[in-house]
Design a binder for these strands. Sequence first.
RNA 1: GCUGAUAUGGCUCAGUUGGUAGAGCAGUUCACUCGUAAUGAACAGGUCGCCGGUUCAAAUCCGGCUAUCAGCUCCA
Length: 645
Amino acid sequence: MINVTLKDGSKKEYENGTTLKEVAESISAGLARVALAGTIDGEVKDLSYVLEKDCEVSLVTFNDEEGKDAFRHTSSHVLAQAVKRLFPEAKLAIGPSIENGYYYDFDSEKAFTPEDLENIEKEMKKIVKEKLQIERFELPRKEAIALMKEKEEPYKVELIEDLPEDAIISFYKQGEFLDLCAGPHIPSTDKIKAFKLLNVAGAYWRGSEKNKMLQRIYGTSFTKKSEMEEYLHRLEEAKKRDHNKLGRQLDLFMTVDEIGQGLPLLMPKGAKVVQTLQRFVEDEEERRGYQLTKTPFMAKNDLYKISGHWDHYKEGMFVLGDEENDDEVLALRPMTCPFQFMIYKSKPRSYRELPLRYAETSTLFRNEASGEMHGLIRVRQFTISEGHLICTPDQLETEFRGVVDLVNYMMSTLGIEEDIWYQFSKWDPNNKEKYIDNPKAWEHTQKEMKNILDNLGIDYVEAEGEAAFYGPKLDIQFRNVHGKEDTIITIQIDFSLPERFDMTFIDKDNQKKRPYVIHRTSIGCYERTLAMLIEKYAGAFPTWLAPVQVKLLPIVDKQHEYVLAVKDKLEKEGIRVEADLRNEKIGYKIREAQLEKVPYMLVVGDKELEANTVAVRSRKDGDQGSISVDAFIEKIEAEIENKER
RNA sequence: GCUGAUAUGGCUCAGUUGGUAGAGCAGUUCACUCGUAAUGAACAGGUCGCCGGUUCAAAUCCGGCUAUCAGCUCCA
């Protein structure tokens, strides 16, 4: 007999050799029905797993992450099985579960079309109906390789060859379909009640652009049809917030073929939002002891040779002039650091001057690969709230804390503190091409940064190989409407550039010492931040950010004179106001203003004209009744001043 | 850069197997002077992304380019 501790802490005795499934059945028939897998001492296992010693057991359902994973992982195997039935020549690569679904990569000469996806889905339905049991078995390495060679699955052979010598190599079999897989899986295919294939896209084998591009089929699956429909509906709704569509519809930005990729034009309304943000940021930074700089958009390559950009970032820069030709070679700046460092270096610095905090609203240029550009999120020219803090080693933690505080303040002012998360981006020791080669310094800086993060009590995820070429980063991430993750803000500790630029300060002991540098942005780059705000608010910006804050809507032309007087009064208060003097019905004007997402519509008819009032209609709450112009000004000014969301 | 898809008036979209373009909305003009999400009528607007090829004839077929979208890789 063995002792099993269950999730609720209770202990039960079972025969040695009991399966997880039998444990589930012994608890309740209901649990046995919905259980998809289980964990043994924290490790996820199939329900068929046999218990052989005392352990802690927890059964997982679709409500648990582990359950979803097993369920969707099996869904991906059903997908692969269907593809193999319809396209036997397709080679299998990998097929994991992902957030909200799963994918499977195939190497197939034939490009899968949307019609193919429909047929694959039909075949998947058959497989589900066949109620195939899923069996796990293990093979010694040699036999595993032989089996995959016999099945003509070269990618699987490669995967096995890369496993360590002592690795347990497991396979899963359902009907005629067999796949190399670590599992876990659910017990049979008929549990997959609701699934859908979403799209097909290219993906490199093993995620490297040096390898062949495979075809990746994405899908999702649920235990209940209603849940899937709800999920698909949510996806559709999210797409309506897509900044790339909404931003153009609302006349915030546009692109022009002749101007080129990744070079959006901010139209008056988009520029107004950015200007509002920029003024706010520059004022706030000044309040926090930053000094503004204005530095050139380009420099000779001499500068980038010192900074390391020439060696590590040349592909990402726009270079002017031909070195071969003995031209003067200039490059548009991809980052601001070297420029602000030169200001630091303009004279000898004393420890008394530190910390120095430089800020710049800085336009940068990066020659992104042509397939990378996306709306306002990935562009070739952008303007960032850039800044560098130069401090003594003793000041590092305090300064870092100050930056995190500023960033948090920015995020909560924008109302997105719940939508973001922290990522500690570390280097990849194996990537010599990307990173400055100084393992000792990397280790040291990362350790120091981790200490600071832990002291600050920041809840972060770690990411290997996401650091900048010169140092580790604390990134603030967000997800766009397509679920894609992007960095909005980054704070970096730099061990490398102060040395390369030979930045020094004279310390108390009259010794020349090396300062630390913190690279940071306070609100990110304005284009990307604007994109995120459009999606967050579905284009209905908080009043303080709205490009048009008030729209005046006279009912008939008799009120035009009064309306223009009110407009003038609001403008004098710095309120962004437009008057709709067109000869249209009031319902029509309201509809348009509502679609333009203007926070306040002021309807003016004879009643308002006589009483010297305006009828306030709020974008979100509708008709608010009439109040005096002064009362309205007071109300909206308070809202703007407090940056209410 | 890679894989796949798309490109028709300002916007959303029709356009059957190749026979020189059509709607709604927006716009302009006129009428209506109207109270909280679309008043009516008339008019105007397109070398069908660009370049080349096939053909008696190309929005439609073929090739190249440009741009856009999804994903990969890369990244703020």
